[in-house]
Each structure stands twice: as C-alpha cells, then as structure tokens.
Design a binder for these strands. Structure first.
Lengths: 148, 148
DNA sequence: CAGGTTGCTTAAGTTACTGAAACAACCATG
DNA sequence: CATGGTTGTTTCAGTAACTTAAGCAACCTG
C-alpha cells in the first residue's frame, strides 16, 4: 500500500483500468443474461423471478423485496408467467391475505434449462488457474463487503 | 491447473463462489448506476446516451449501434433529453439525411457531474492493495478477453 | 433520371416500472 | 368483541424503454 486514500480522490491508471474492466464484465454479464432469457422466450425480469421461484414458493410481497421493486409490479410479472403456465398462485394456509407464487413443474424445467445456458460467468473463469481464481474471489469478496 | 475443462462441466465450489460474487458486483454496479442517474433526474438509458454524447456528437444511427438498440428507440431517448435542453439535434453538413445528436453545454455539465457521482466501482477498489488490484486486473482482463 | 439503399421518424404494441387508491384479512387495544 | 390501524394484493393511470413495420427524404449508382 502506497498512499491510503489516494485512489478515492484522483484514481491512478491501474484503478481506472479495473473500473473499465468491471464495466465491461457487467455489460457482458447483463447481455448474456438477457440473451439466455430470450432463448427461453423470457424477459430478464421474468427470468429473475422464475429463478427465485424455482427454489421455493414465495409470497408476492417477499418477491418484491427480493427483486427490489414494488409489489404492484410483481403482480404483472406473475400474471404473465402464470398465463404461460410457468408459475401458479396458491393460497397461504396460514394467512388468507397472502398469495404464494410457485413455479410449476414446467416452470422449474425452464428455470433449470436457463441456469444451464447461463454460462458467461463460468466459461471465462475456466481459463483462470486455481490461484488466479482464489485471488479474484478474495478481491471480489472485499469489493462487495466494502460498502454493503 | 489441475484438470483443464473440469470447471466448464461441473463447477467446483470456488468457481461457484466467484460466479456468485460476479453476479453480486454486477447487481451492485447496476443499482449504483441507476441511482446516480436518478439523482440527476435521468433514467439509466438516458444517462448512457448522454455519456456517449458528452465525448462527441454522433449520428442517431451510430448512437443506436453503440447502445445496441434500434434507431427508432434512440429517437425517443433523444426527444426526451432534447426537451430538457441536455441534447440538441444538428444537421450534418456532409449528408442532409443525417441528424447529429450533440450534448449541450448543460448536457456536458450534467454528464460530468454524473461521472463524478458514479463511484461504486472505484470506492471499494480503494480498499485493495496495489498487488490485489493488479491481480484483479489480470483476472478481469483474461475474463473479458476469453470470449470476445 | 429511375431505382435501390440509407437515415430518421412515426405509429402501434408490449413489458417494466411507479404511486395512489381500493379491498380484504390480520391484529391490537380498550 | 368491536373498532381501528396495519398488511398483502390488486387495479388503475401514467411514464419510459423497447420492437417491428411503414413512411419519407436524401443519397448514390447505372
């Protein structure tokens, strides 16, 4: 470490390059996700929702929190997936206000297939040695841990 | 390196964690970008377009290519920014079909301010040592170089 | 100059999103 | 146990981002 808060003020060339690269990875990851979703005739938002539901049924409200959007938005998303038979609404036996959104069997099948075709983040990683992957993991850990 | 294509088939725990972390960084970066844009009363798409134009004026068609969307979409984006005085349309002296979208002075000012408030990718990087940043850079380089 | 191509816009339609208002069911508290 | 506030979901109205198809003007080429 050379000068503690220097990078926050006027970033050096190294930091700038890393920022650039992170931006590139973000763009690539995003495009890849949308493409994989589109191959399954899903939008990105629908794919994210379906992925969540493929693990466990969730109340609308909790879905909204996970997706970081308003509950009224989730209504529409679930509507569209339900119309295609990928998701269904069930009553919550414990609370009659609540509706549990759950992936149907077909929904889980699509989610699995989607997960498998989402290979961007994994494929380029295969080119890294174990040591490099460990270093990358540590750096990323500290990045996401930094301003949580 | 232990087993060459192993990770592509059934990823080990390390790879899975890195994938997870990359996803986290992507989500964080995205949210941060949208937030910074919103602070300037811009949507993400508007912010991206304005950033491009803050460097140089561009024909609508080229703008569409850069943003990876249809030209008809760019029309609307530029319309909204133009209505707010951040962008203007100029004729291209060389080709009367072409309209050059250019950031106004106010538009450049907003773009600069936006750039400065976009600190996610930089701030957490400050917590990394130079050695870590170099390792991160190298890993990212190989990731983006891998499947260009 | 006729005819195809290129650049932009308009029009129509979908999805994703938000905020406000409505409604039912839950859960106090007096 | 009634009253009233809170919570979960939906509906509605409105905006932005996007796509495709169609239209129009200017370009270019034979």
């Amino acid at each position: 470490m050379t000068a503690p808060h220097e990078t926050a003020r006027r970033p050096d060339a190294l930091t700038l390059e890393v920022v650039e690269l992170v931006g590139e990875v973000v763009a690539r990851f995003h495009a890849d996700y949308e493409k994989a979703a589109a191959e399954h005739a899903l939008t990105g938002a629908q794919a994210r929702l379906l992925s969540l539901l493929s693990l466990e049924p969730l109340p609308m409200r909790k879905l909204a929190r996970r997706l970081k959007c308003e509950p009224s938005n989730v209504t529409g998303l679930v509507d569209r997936l339900e119309a295609r038979g990928l998701v269904e609404r069930r009553p919550d036996p414990a609370d009659r206000r609540v509706k549990l959104a759950a992936a149907t069997q077909e929904g889980r099948r699509v989610a699995r297939s989607l997960r498998e075709s989402l290979r961007f983040a994994r494929e380029p990683l295969a080119g890294l040695s174990e040591g490099e992957r460990v270093a990358l993991r540590d750096a990323l850990r500290r990045m996401v841990g930094a301003d949580g």
